[in-house]
């Protein structure tokens, strides 16, 4: 780096935070979180393969408050990573780089990940309609 004559971009902490920056780092953070989600899904599959007792044990843990917090975080991480990932696929095709477009798509990513998380929980746990 010492022989670089080109101007370097300022360090990350110089910029004021924007929605785009937050979503960028959250994409990576939720990706790591989904690694934990993969372990959760694997535990669920193992529990089903093992038998009714193991499955009940899994359900008991997931029905607790801690379990539900983890499941909720998992759902939101999955939706955010998926929605933002779809946006990345558009960027890969060279679409949506303009400042206005990228602000609009940031808001869409946020809206759809919240909406899909809420939808999953309303259907799954009947948080509004008691099934």
């Amino acid at each position: 780096m010492s022989d670089t004559k080109r101007p370097l971009s300022p360090h990350l902490q110089v910029y004021s935070w924007s929605l785009e920056m937050a979503l960028s780092i959250f994409h990576r953070a939720t990706g790591v979180a989904l690694g934990g989600g993969a372990l959760l899904i694997t535990w669920w599959i193992i529990a089903i393969a093992t038998g009714p007792d193991a499955y009940d044990q899994f359900r008991t843990v997931m029905s607790s408050i801690t379990g539900k917090v983890f499941l909720f975080a998992f759902t939101f991480s999955l939706m955010l990573h998926m929605c933002n990932g779809i946006r990345h696929l558009f960027w890969d095709m060279g679409k949506g780089f303009d400042l206005g477009d990228s602000r609009r798509s940031s808001k869409m990513v946020l809206f759809f990940s919240v909406f899909l998380t809420a939808l999953s929980w309303v259907i799954g746990y009947g948080m509004i309609l008691e099934v």
Binding site: I48, G51, D56, L78, M82, G124, Y125
Partner: peptide, 22 residues
């Protein structure tokens, strides 16, 4: 690209089984 439809399938299947027994 493959994970988009697979994820939608997985989540929409699993939300119907939160109260299902073994």
């Amino acid at each position: 690209v493959a994970l988009v439809p697979l994820t939608i399938w997985f989540v929409s299947s699993i939300v119907q089984m939160t109260r299902a027994d073994y």
